[in-house]
């Protein structure tokens, strides 16, 4: 693109005064010797004048549109407030219900598993409360329990307590003695009978 064509393209924005310094300087230099571009600037000035003469808005339409717009804004605000009012009570009730369910059901389940050492449970045979050494492998625990032909009826609790139910024909004192002597067992105690 030649300098003349480039300047010709820039002229509308030369007239509105928004060219950057480099572009403006280029146009100014070109206008020194180009009659055609000077004529074009005159036409563009006339054009610009024409656009500035465009009619002002009708006050009636403006007032009506403004009033409708502000009503729309107010309406949106009221709809939001109504929506909040309509949903606030059910939402609060639903939230309360969820909280209540969360409070009641998991804790009631936890209470079973977080039994204390003095806890007793209904089981047919004797029950031994048992705590293994930390990091005792599951295989060792299973082997110890099966060796006594018992089975774990609950645990471990948060304190690591298992409850081991023995068959009726097993002597609990003998089992207890054997468990206490095992290196993987930290604690073993017979649960008090109900």
């Amino acid at each position: 693109m030649s300098s003349h064509e480039e300047v010709l393209e820039f002229l509308p924005w030369f007239v509105n005064g928004t060219l950057n310094e480099r572009e403006q300087s280029m146009v100014n230099d070109h206008l020194q010797g180009c009659r055609e571009c000077n004529e074009e600037v005159k036409v563009l000035l006339e054009t610009s004048k024409l656009f500035h003469a465009s009619p002002e808005p009708s006050p009636d339409l403006f007032g009506q549109a403004r009033s409708e717009f502000l009503q729309q804004l107010q309406g949106r605000r009221e709809r939001r407030a109504n929506w909040a009012r309509r949903w606030m009570i059910p939402a609060t009730m639903a939230a309360c219900l969820v909280v209540a369910v969360l409070i009641v059901s998991p804790v009631s389940r936890q209470e079973e598993s977080f039994g204390t050492l003095g806890n007793s449970a209904s089981s047919s045979g004797h029950v031994i409360q048992l705590v293994f050494q930390p990091d005792t492998p599951e295989k060792s625990i299973r082997s110890l329990v099966l060796g006594d032909q018992g089975h774990i009826i609950s645990g471990p609790t948060a304190q690591g307590v298992y409850r081991l139910e023995l068959p009726l024909d097993k002597d609990p004192q003998w089992v207890l003695e054997r468990l206490r002597n095992h290196p993987d067992v930290q604690f073993a105690e017979l649960e008090a009978s109900p």
């Binding site: 030369f14 007239v15 005064g17 928004t18 403006q24 100014n28 206008l31 020194q32 000035l45 610009s48």
Partner: peptide
Amino acid sequence: PLRSNDIPLGIPCSV
């Protein structure tokens, strides 16, 4: 030659 400062429109012409 016309310069942008010559524009007689009452528009602010200084960039």
